[in-house]
Amino acid sequence: MSRNTIPIRTAHAPSAAFDYISTKKDEFVGWARKFSLFPYPFVTACCAMEFMAVSSTPYDTDRFGAALPRFSPRQSDLLMVVGTVTHKQAPVLLKVYAQMCEPKWVMAFGACATSGGFYQNYAALAGIDKIIPVDVYVPGCPPRPETVIDAIMQLQDRIAHAHHPILTGSF
């Protein structure tokens, strides 16, 4: 046997801890889901600048598993509506939302997506919750990155403590 040979461990030695854990299904699924948010940025207006800021390295949304935007609604589970939505755009937003697979969550990013902001006119939709359900609202015009991070964490809490009914029966 040469001196450079690395011994190969052939048998798995029984260890004292962590061979198995027990938990509740909802907690386990919630824990997995809350750290794998794939945002779809529906970016329409000036809030996009702040979205870029929060997506950048200093704020590191990868800590929350929410860093990688998917530009297909079919691959994403967090719809971030960033900016003003007009009545003309509303059918597009509704279609994007309908294309997302369950489970899905919606974040209204900024004052306009939340309530229409300072717009009250023929063109602007007064808040996206008039057409799709919203899970978390981010105030601000535009919101600071810390506000967005807070919203992501609130959404994570909500996901972690939710009932996840898609896995039933034999699971």
Partner: peptide, 14 residues
Amino acid sequence: DYRKDHEQPLVPYR
């Protein structure tokens, strides 16, 4: 004479 709060939504509201 177009009212500023007159909306003509394309999508029915929830």
